[in-house]
């Protein structure tokens, strides 16, 4: 049985500004297994976030292919890609990116607004997600009333509330102190180990990457090193 979830072949991404073409990823090949916790490391400008965006269908490659499960991401139309993202991808951002005018519960409910769930079902799912991240006591709090670590927990709850196939985390601890960062990493680890979530995490921090099951290093748009932690 093939247990690979993400298969990337010959992936290139170039950005064009006027006549100037900047290659960011060049002929990259990568495979992520189902249930894996992969850390993607590399210096600034190495193409980590670009790769994350391409896998998550937020951007389109210049060349190459990205398959997630049975879906060829680069071949999907814009609208199909949007629907695919809603179904399969959970994003966790460095700066949490919560809606400041919505409570924690309403923030977590956001992805569920795109489903046919009733109001009470949406609320129940959101409460469950917030329970998983340990924030049942903060349901009605607004982002500005939460600490950074708590906001990131809400971000993770929002990412997992639709039970996505893949969790894409862009520097999830980059804005947190060590203690809060550890809690977030523990949470991601738990989601990976106990709930079998496939996690791809971009990070600069070796301490964070140490929690992953595999570490991949990128430099100048190419994979330069791979290690199993």
């Amino acid at each position: 049985m093939n247990d690979s979830l993400v298969r990337i072949e010959n992936l290139s991404k170039e950005f064009q500004r006027g006549s100037e073409v900047t290659p960011v990823l060049a002929g990259l090949r990568l495979e992520i297994r189902r249930g894996e916790f992969l850390a993607l490391m590399g210096p600034s400008g190495s193409g980590k976030s670009t790769l994350l965006n391409l896998i998550g269908g937020l951007d389109r490659p210049t060349r190459g292919s990205i398959a997630v499960g049975e879906d060829r991401v680069e071949t999907l139309s814009d609208s199909a890609l949007t629907a695919w993202r809603a179904r399969h991808i959970g994003f966790v951002f460095q700066f949490y990116n919560l809606m400041p005018s919505l409570s924690a519960l309403k923030n977590v409910e956001l992805p569920l607004l795109l489903t046919h769930l009733s109001s009470s079902q949406r609320r129940k799912h959101a409460e469950t997600a917030l329970e998983i991240v340990g924030l049942t006591h903060r349901l009605k709090h607004y982002p500005h009333q939460l600490s950074g670590g708590e906001q990131q927990r809400v971000g993770i709850a929002r990412a997992i509330v639709t039970d996505p196939t893949l969790l894409l985390c862009d520097e999830p601890t980059g804005d947190l102190d060590r203690k809060s960062g550890d809690e977030i990493l523990g949470l991601l680890e738990g989601l990976n180990r106990q709930q079998g979530k496939t996690v791809l995490m971009v990070t600069h921090d070796p301490h964070a990457s140490a929690r992953a099951s595999r570490i991949v290093h990128l430099d100048k748009g190419r994979l330069v090193q791979e290690a199993v932690s």
Partner: peptide, 14 residues
């Protein structure tokens, strides 16, 4: 702009 980007990232169509 950023918030709209986030909404689109989590599946809100154009």
């Amino acid at each position: 702009t950023g918030e709209i980007g986030v909404l689109k990232a989590i599946g809100f169509c154009n």
